[in-house]
Design a protein around this nucleic acid. Structure first.
Lengths: 193, 193
DNA sequence: CGTTCAGTTGACTAAGGTCAATTCCCGTGG
DNA sequence: CCACGGGAATTGACCTTAGTCAACTGAACG
């Protein structure tokens, strides 16, 4: 990996729970890819044998369901992870698609390279455990959100937690992320103000 | 750990992705607890420093929300895991409660003992990674369920996937598990037949 | 036999979905 | 610079379904 700011390394160290030295080691298997706005990053039926970390920009991870509807499953911005972790660990094909919503820079690492790291030094197994924990906690949080809150409350929560998402991302993607139609989101916004 | 059938060991080996020898090793840190029907297994605000595996019986994991409503979050039966994995990995207090719904036998292991195993042999770190993956896949599945299906579809899915749950567990717990009121579940059932 | 609680049913309300029309916004080309 | 086109967002009318509150039924247990 090429030049990378100290601030970024510290951010990674914090997220991955690694020392700065370990982050440097890890960055050796990483690479950066740049995408223009509105580009397909991962097509349908791909196997996610890598994960990415958004250095800057925004993407959405979405599905096309049986009825042909486009449903945004995740909206990820700076410092968020992208990929389909279920596909990454099981090796199965994913139905998820990824699209950039802005000019986006992604730091990737391939599964095979992580596995090679673990072969060389079992220390890295701890990293994969940690990543798995993070993926679980993310899923759990999203689950609680859907289970315990109404669409309106979910919108307010998002507003509070990630105002940048609301600024950067078209409303139609936000509505399906919240599990509602664009019309309903429009009415919720009207109701609130 | 005391006597345990081969069938059960094979089941554990399959779930935990361990050899039978490793299962024997693992069982040394495990212990069994029996509960009568309708007993409190974990009170509120406990820290889940252990996980359990239901040998037989059924439990529900639930919350009491701000409004004082009792909401069943998970309904677990034979071969399911019990605990609050988020609390287990973060060490934070859990708001989850666990109650037995039948006479239930649980195989437990304590976090500290797993950590001691890892200290002795780093091999066991892989087990924790695997458990974390399983927890993630579970959460993800539940998430998809809530995100993509209506209450009625969720009921039908449950009917197909776990008819035992529907036989064993009172409807009022099933309704909150599905994210609806008992009245709505009653009406859905009426609608279907 | 009566108490209790789960489950059902009824009447009504609230909120999101659907379909269609309209308005807004923004980028492009004349 | 302005006019136009096209997609996004909003709005309206109506429908469907879950929530709420309350009454009622039924089964289990002492």
């Amino acid at each position: 990996m090429r030049m990378m700011t100290t601030a970024l390394k510290e951010k990674l160290a914090e997220i991955l729970q690694l020392s700065l030295e370990r982050v440097d080691e890890f960055l050796e298997i990483c690479y950066v890819v740049n995408y223009d706005k509105n580009r397909m990053i991962e097509p349908k039926n791909s196997i996610f044998d890598r994960l990415g970390f958004i250095l800057n920009g925004a993407v959405r991870i979405y599905y096309i369901n049986e009825k042909g509807e486009d449903i945004s499953y995740l909206l990820q911005v700076n410092n968020d992870v992208i990929g389909d972790y279920a596909s990454y660990i099981t090796g199965k094909k994913s139905v998820a698609l990824i699209q950039s919503l802005l000019k986006t820079e992604v730091l990737y690492f391939d599964k095979k390279d992580v596995e090679a790291l673990i072969q060389k030094d079992i220390f890295w197994l701890g990293l994969t455990k940690h990543m798995s924990d993070l993926a679980f906690l993310d899923a759990k949080q999203r689950l609680d959100e859907l289970f315990f809150y109404t669409p309106e409350e979910r919108y307010l929560n998002l507003l509070k937690k990630s105002p940048e998402i609301l600024n950067k991302i078209p409303q139609k993607y936000i509505s399906s992320y919240l599990g509602i139609t664009p019309q309903s989101l429009s009415r919720i916004r009207k109701r609130i103000y």
